[in-house]
Design a protein around this nucleic acid. Structure first.
Lengths: 144, 144
DNA sequence: TGATAATCGGATAAATTTGTCCTTTATTAC
DNA sequence: GTAATAAAGGACAAATTTATCCGATTATCA
């Protein structure tokens, strides 16, 4: 569904958000251990997210990544997915046609559009903060 | 969403089904032209679908691919996707955790499961024949 | 029975995604 | 200011997906 990069990106952000709520910055090592991801690869993804102003980074000792109170409320998964994977997953044709729309649909267009729209609205209405609740009280995990 | 291979596979099957309803076999060249796909790559995918008994193939002059009346009714997209891409798209974790379930869910598990289940049920209830109707009366296309 | 038309199957190549390594740059603490 | 620390960024490597090529095999028809 999502790329590996996107999966790592979302998991990173959830972890960072969880720590940021307590005012703590987390560094790359902590992140990649917490979410069980290859650290150098995760670093690349975080760079993208920093450039997209989703997360802030601080260099030097006690540096790391942090998300502002505002961002954790306003940034939703749609934006995150869009930054990493692009908008293909909720906008492009299920059968791979380059121009598929109501006027010239693929045979699956109308049925598929519903599922795609549902996915999009799920991603839209889910903020980073929404995802940390279950994590913090131990009802969900970021690795296994 | 689906791999390129899967997209080509589904489009191929829709085209073959459409022709098979008129008792016509179609060869690889006709298929890859009709759906605008690389023919050698499409051949590989069709091999898989032949082995999975979704489509029949006949070698030699006037050979080609054909789908039985029974198959076009009983084969649904879930089976096709499963043969080509595996069942990951409707069974595996949205955030990439290897073991994610109600007991040990990822933070997105329950919301994501709904969309995934909707996708699965769409694929389950859609047979190959279902997809040919709009194509035959020109209301949908397989390339553009 | 031979020529031909078609799929089958293996090897290989190109492109993309995933992942690593190393140097540079910025920050903090001493 | 200097050393230690952490992200940034570039180059490269591995793995996977996408795609091509070609010989082998099989079936049909004249």
């Amino acid at each position: 569904m999502f790329s590996k990069a996107c999966e790592y990106g979302i998991r990173s952000l959830i972890f960072i958000t969880s720590k940021s709520m307590e005012g703590e910055r987390v560094n790359l090592t902590e992140i990649s251990e917490a979410i069980d991801s290859p650290s150098a690869f995760t670093a690349k993804i975080l760079q993208k997210l920093v450039k997209a102003n989703i997360v802030d980074s601080v260099k030097g000792p006690h540096g790391g990544f942090i998300i502002s109170q505002e961002s954790m409320l306003t940034v939703n998964l749609e934006k995150v997915v869009n930054v990493i994977d692009g908008d293909g997953i909720y906008s492009s044709c299920g059968l791979g046609l380059s121009r598929c729309n109501e006027k010239k649909p693929c045979p699956l267009h109308f049925q598929f559009k519903e599922v795609r729209d549902d996915l999009r609205s799920l991603l839209q209405r889910t903020s980073l903060k929404d995802l940390t609740g279950s994590l913090d009280n131990g009802l969900s995990v970021l690795k296994n």
